[in-house]
Design a protein around this nucleic acid. Structure first.
Length: 770
DNA sequence: ACGCCGACCGTCCGA
DNA sequence: CGGTCGGCGT
């Protein structure tokens, strides 16, 4: 009996693969993390690979942490010397050691999106770019895309020749990079790009890491971009002791779960892996251990509408399970209300815990309504993503102090805090200092130290000097033996008067801010206590820069989890609510109206597939007919993805993922009150037979305030009668000759001039009174 | 220099 | 709806 006996034959083939490139196509829930961890154990224990020679790369810290824990459990010794980390932390670690050869200082800081925007604002001002015509975000996204593809500013400029718009971008890109370097800062994309640059220009560094990482594993490979591909490619080209290239590269991914095209993921990395790495062994993991047959079938039905996939079909031995449900609510408000109350009922009935549920949505903005309802019902919850803790003003302020102390070259940080709290240093002063800094080719902070000698600042210099001494004072304390980061942050809060100012302000907002600062102090203390190496200020700032919200998610806590579909990738939950299944929301407006809608819709469909496959036991899909979006009301049809699920798999209008038959009222919402689907047209021909019976659920009529557009076909509120002329989507206009009550529905008989007499169900036929 | 207010605006997704 | 920015008054 060995640890490998519990693996299925395909998993074993992947684990026991010896040398050379290996592509594992691992469907959702097929146990890929298990395969990766067992493979690591196998390499060490059976192939006598030195743990030191293994690199495992993931996309999130959470995944890295989990893999580390699982490896620790099954690898007897030496597991701590396996390098398990994310792309970004791997690169930071490499750059901290070698980046001086690229002309940066090793204490570089990492710019987040806000910092990037501030810097780009300066760039635009300098280049006299009208940010109304080309906004900072737009320029940054062009630059980011270039970096993802390893296009340098020089190359970008070359390609842009003759195109005014592109040339502007090229100028901005060049200037932006110049200023990043001046600030001794790297943005997220730079972390990868600069590491590739390092390896291409510094043979010694490349050799060192090639030699070290003889076995490389990459998780979520479908989400890698071109720069990351190049990085892996370079690393995997090391030679073994006989001078041979082995390409001991094992990548795990699922092309159906590629959902990060917008941030540069290149699906060709996985589709063309076999071409890029000759003699690749391909192993498919197609048995799903996570979901019920109902859920898996639903997922397969949706994803099979995509073209250009790797051929594979997921199956499961699990039970059939509860059918997947779809509910169309009248409003987004009601959607949130019903879903949260349903979850509460389950938990109070003892059928599940709050941590068994996840509510997923396409955009973060959709979380707000759910949050309000959860607070109202006193249900514990955690929202992943959205407004980042580290992007709150007070946190950014304190971090800017820490950054200024750590790296005075980071002008964005210095400018942020120079007048926070108020020191009477205004914009005009800052501009003068800035000009002086640029003219003398020194950093902004350096210029501040020479304030007295800057022409025109004779008077304001008296306000600048105390700020400089404050920072210098804090810096010098930091160099003292035994002075902790915890003390530093306390000194900052005290010496600047930042905390005092908040304490004197008795508002609710100020109290929140203080609480947030306390939270930051907690994080710093726990960093100091848990740091693997000597805790340093740079180390803390780095951790903060690279942390993502999902990393702190603890599924064992008793709370519902709310997050976007993107954040949910890689996770699983017993019961999943997939909300906002509406055209314009999911698939999103941007995808539908893109230049290449087919491609964009396929990406959305993969996202839908990811969402569906998160569910283990129960899946409930929902839409709202009416939704508030940026202050205005939208009316949306149900998502096309709902239409792609065959009727027999979908239990319509029931809002429960399980035990719907148990007798109680799942929802007092008007079940019939939904917009008909296109597929329902076919269904009319066989009305009264087939799977429709499933949907005959007891309900009590409930009238909801309705927009006129949707009042045409719901039970109890038919706005047409016998003798009226109505319009049908397929049959055109006709006259209503009879209406009878049938089951929970009206059976409407209509005479169409061109199609004859048809019997239609009011809830499915889109009959509109003319 | 700074704070207030009204106009405007623009949107997905994220390390 | 909610954040941001620019104009204006102090």
């Amino acid at each position: 009996m060995s640890i490998y006996d519990t693996l299925n034959p395909e998993q074993q083939r992947a684990v026991f693969h010896d040398k050379g490139p290996l592509l594992i196509l691992a469907g959702a829930g097929s146990g890929k993390t298990r395969v990766l961890t067992h493979r690591i154990a196998y390499l060490i224990e059976e192939r006598e690979v030195n743990p030191w020679n293994i690199l495992a790369i993931t996309f999130t810290n959470k995944a890295a942490k989990e893999m580390r824990e699982r490896v620790d459990k099954i690898v007897g010794y030496g597991s701590e010397s396996i390098w398990v980390s994310t792309f970004h932390s791997t690169c930071v670690r490499i750059l901290r050691r070698y980046i001086d050869t690229l002309g940066y200082d090793r204490s570089f800081t990492i710019y987040d999106t806000d910092d990037q925007k501030s810097l780009m604002r300066e760039v635009c001002k300098y280049l006299e770019i009208d940010t109304k015509k080309m906004n900072e975000r737009g320029i940054l996204s062009v630059i980011s895309k270039a970096k993802d593809e390893l296009v340098s500013p020089e190359e970008f400029a070359l390609r842009a020749q003759g195109d005014y718009q592109q040339s502007k971008y090229a100028q901005a890109y060049t200037e932006y990079q110049k200023r990043l370097k001046l600030n001794n800062a790297l943005d997220f994309d730079d972390l990868i790009v600069k590491t590739v640059e390092l390896f291409q220009t510094n043979k010694e560094a490349l050799n060192y890491y090639q030699n070290r990482f003889r076995y490389i594993m990459v998780d979520e490979y479908q989400d890698t971009n071109t720069a990351q591909f190049r990085l892996i490619h370079l690393l995997s080209m090391g030679l073994n002791e006989y001078g041979e290239r082995e390409y001991n590269l094992c990548v795990v991914g699922d092309d159906d779960q590629s959902i990060y095209k917008f941030r540069g993921a290149n699906i060709h990395n996985i589709l063309n892996f076999e071409q890029a790495f000759p003699n690749t062994k391909v192993i498919k993991l197609e048995q799903n251990y996570r979901s019920t047959k109902s859920i898996l079938n639903t997922a397969n039905e949706v994803i099979c509408n995509n073209k250009g996939r790797k051929d594979k079909s997921l199956w499961t031995d699990n039970e059939e399970g509860q059918p997947v449900c779809f509910t169309q609510f009248a409003t987004d408000f009601e959607e949130a209300d019903q879903i949260t109350s349903e979850i509460k009922r389950y938990v109070e009935a003892g059928e599940a815990g709050y941590n068994d549920f996840a509510i997923l949505y396409r955009t973060n903005a959709q979380s707000r309504l759910f949050e309000e309802k959860l607070i109202l019902r006193n249900i514990p919850y955690k929202i992943v993503g959205g407004v980042n803790f580290y992007s709150r003003r007070e946190i950014k302020d304190i971090l800017a102090y820490l950054k200024t102390i750590d790296n005075g070259m980071d002008s964005i940080a210095v400018k942020r805090i120079i007048n926070v709290p108020r020191r009477g240093i205004g914009l005009t002063t800052i501009d003068k200092v800035n000009d002086y800094a640029i003219r003398n080719d020194i950093s902004f902070y350096e210029a501040l130290t020479r304030a007295q000698s800057i022409p025109g600042l004779e008077r304001t210099a008296s306000k600048i000097t105390p700020f400089v001494s404050l920072i210098e004072g804090l810096k010098s304390r930091l160099t003292k033996e035994g002075y902790s980061l915890n003390e530093l942050i306390d000194d900052i809060l005290d010496a600047t008067g930042y905390l005092r100012e908040l304490e004197e302000d008795n508002s609710e907002e100020a109290k929140d801010r203080i609480a947030n600062i306390d939270e930051l102090v907690n994080k710093l203390v726990s960093y100091e206590e848990n740091a693997e190496e000597e805790p340093t200020l740079s180390g803390f700032l780095e951790e903060v820069a690279l942390v993502s919200d999902i990393d702190s998610l603890d599924e064992t806590n008793e709370h519902i989890v709310l997050m976007t579909l993107h954040s949910a990738k890689g996770l699983e939950f017993p019961y999943v609510y997939l909300s906002g299944m509406e055209e314009g929301i999911f698939p999103g407006y941007m995808a539908i109206h893109a230049e290449n809608p087919e491609e964009e819709i396929e990406e959305e469909r993969r996202l839908c597939y990811v969402g569906i496959t998160r569910a283990m036991k129960g899946l409930s899909l929902s839409a709202a007919k009416q939704r508030m979006l940026r202050g205005e009301t939208q009316f949306n049809r149900p998502s096309r993805f709902i239409n792609e699920i065959p009727r027999y798999l979908l239990k319509m209008n029931a809002s429960s993922p399980k035990k719907i038959q148990s007798g109680y009222q799942t929802s007092d919402y008007d079940f019939n009150n939904h917009t008909p689907f296109e597929k329902s047209i076919e269904f009319e021909k066989s009305s009264g037979t087939g799977s429709y019976k499933q949907t005959q659920i007891a309900y009590k009529p409930y009238s909801t305030p309705e927009p006129k557009q949707f009042a045409g076909n719901n039970m109890g509120t038919l706005d047409y009668g016998v003798g009226d002329t109505v319009k049908h989507i397929k049959f055109g206009t006709g006259e209503v000759i009879d209406i009878v009550m049938g089951g929970k529905d009206y059976e409407v008989t209509v005479e169409f001039p061109n199609f004859g007499v048809k019997k239609l169900l009011s809830s499915f036929a889109k009959l509109v009174k003319i």
